[in-house]
Amino acid sequence: MAEIIVVTSGKGGVGKTTTSASVAVGLARRGKRVVVIDFDVGLRNLDLIMGCERRVVYDFVNVIQGECTLKQALIKDKRLDNLFVLAASQTRDKDALTKEGVEGVLNGLKEMDFEYIVCDSPAGIEKGAFLAMYFADRAVVVVNPEVSSVRDSDRILGLLASKTRHAETGERAVAQHLLLTRYNPERVQRGDMMSIADVQEILGLDVLGVVPESDTVLAGSNAGTPVILDAASHAGQAYDDAVARLLGETVPMRFTDAQKKGFLTRLFGG
C-alpha cells in the first residue's frame, strides 16, 4: 500500500522542491519504490532539481487529460532504478489539475506498486497546493526559522487538519511533521535567529529534521543532483537523517550546535 507524502509550506522559497527531491532520493536509496510529483503547474522546477529536465516528454496534465499513459509520463531516474519523476505541465491553464484527475493518477501509481508517492506542493494556498495536500497520508511542512515562514506554516497546518480527504472522512488525521531548513546555529547562538525549540513551541509540533544553511544546497541545484547525494554535505546528511526518522528510525540531531571557535580562529578571525 502506497503512502502519499506531501511536501508543503505555504511560503515560497523555503526549500520545498529541494526537500521533495532529497526525500524521494533518500527513500529510493533505502530500496523503496518511489515516485515524486511536481504539482507546480505553470512553474515546473522539480525536473531541474532532479536533473532530468531534458528528458521530460509528457507531464502530469498530459496524463490527466488522457494524452498519454501514466507509464509514458514517468521519467526514470538515472541514478536509482526504483525512482521516478512526474513533471508538472508548463501550461498557464490554472484549471488543468482537477481533484478527480489527481485522484486518478494517484490510484494509477498505487496500482503500479509504488511504496511512496511524494507530492511537491507549489507555494501559496491556491488550487495546486490544495490538490497536492488533499490526498496525503503524511505531510512534511518545510519551515525556515523566520517570521513569515513560521506564520504561513501554521496556516498550512490548519488546512491539513481540515481540507484533506482524511480530515473530511474523519477516518484519521494526516500525520504532520516539521522540517526546519536554512538553519544557522551560529546566528541562533547570537540571538539573531529563532531556535529549533522556539519554532517547535510556536507551532506545537516536533521537528522531523533540521537542515543547516549550506552552500552545498545551491551547488546541488546547479548540478541537478539532489543535495542528499552529496555525502560530504552537512545538509545532505541532515536530509538523510530526516528520511530515516520518516521511516521510524531514531536518529540523533546533527549540525544543530554552533561550531566552537578554536584559539587561532579567534585570534586571526575566520
Binding site: 517570521v147 490548519g158 547570537r190 540571538g191 539573531d192 529563532m194 522556539d198 510556536i202 507551532l203
Partner: peptide
C-alpha cells in the same frame, strides 16, 4: 532584547489569534 526573542513573541501572539479565528 535580541531579535530572535522579538520574533518569537510576535509570532506567539499572531499565531494564537489566527488559530482562534480558524473555522
Amino acid at each position: 532584547p535580541n531579535s530572535a526573542s522579538l520574533a518569537k513573541e510576535r509570532l506567539r501572539i499572531i499565531v494564537a489569534q489566527e488559530r482562534a479565528q480558524r473555522g
